[in-house]
């Protein structure tokens, strides 16, 4: 597929890490029509994003087709230290998935 997911994780005071992620995905709602053919474009969107800190699940995002194309996601994680790893994995409604890992800096 297209471009790879980007994940950044920066630690702030008090062990709080802010994670920012940008995924590249069409996020089709299944309601739009192709202008040329008049056919409905099938739904194709990310359903679930799993976030793991050092292999432990800290956040699960359940998304509907309402989330924008190329979804951006930001959140924070407490009790972290530099060098910890944050892994994001998305899975879409066709079963496709992608993972990306960032080291907290």
């Amino acid at each position: 597929m297209a471009r790879k997911m980007k994940v950044r994780a920066f630690i702030k005071d008090g062990g709080i890490t802010v994670v920012k992620a940008l995924m590249f995905h069409p996020m089709e709602t299944g309601l739009r029509k192709d202008k040329k053919t008049g056919k409905t474009i099938p739904a194709h969107f990310i359903q679930e994003v799993d976030v793991q800190l050092n292999g432990n699940k800290v956040l699960t995002c359940l998304w509907g087709p309402v989330v924008s194309k190329n979804p951006f996601l930001s959140f924070d994680i407490s009790d972290t230290k530099a060098g910890d790893t944050v892994q994001l994995t998305w899975t879409d409604n066709t079963g496709a998935s992608e993972s990306a890992t960032a080291t907290i800096a």
Partner: peptide, 22 residues
């Protein structure tokens, strides 16, 4: 579709969520 997104939080991850929606 009324529900845009639902996030299952944990103790370590619960203070804010940012996302973009249509």
């Amino acid at each position: 579709s009324k529900l845009a997104a639902s996030y299952e939080l944990s103790k370590q991850c619960s203070s804010f969520i940012t996302c973009r929606i249509k």
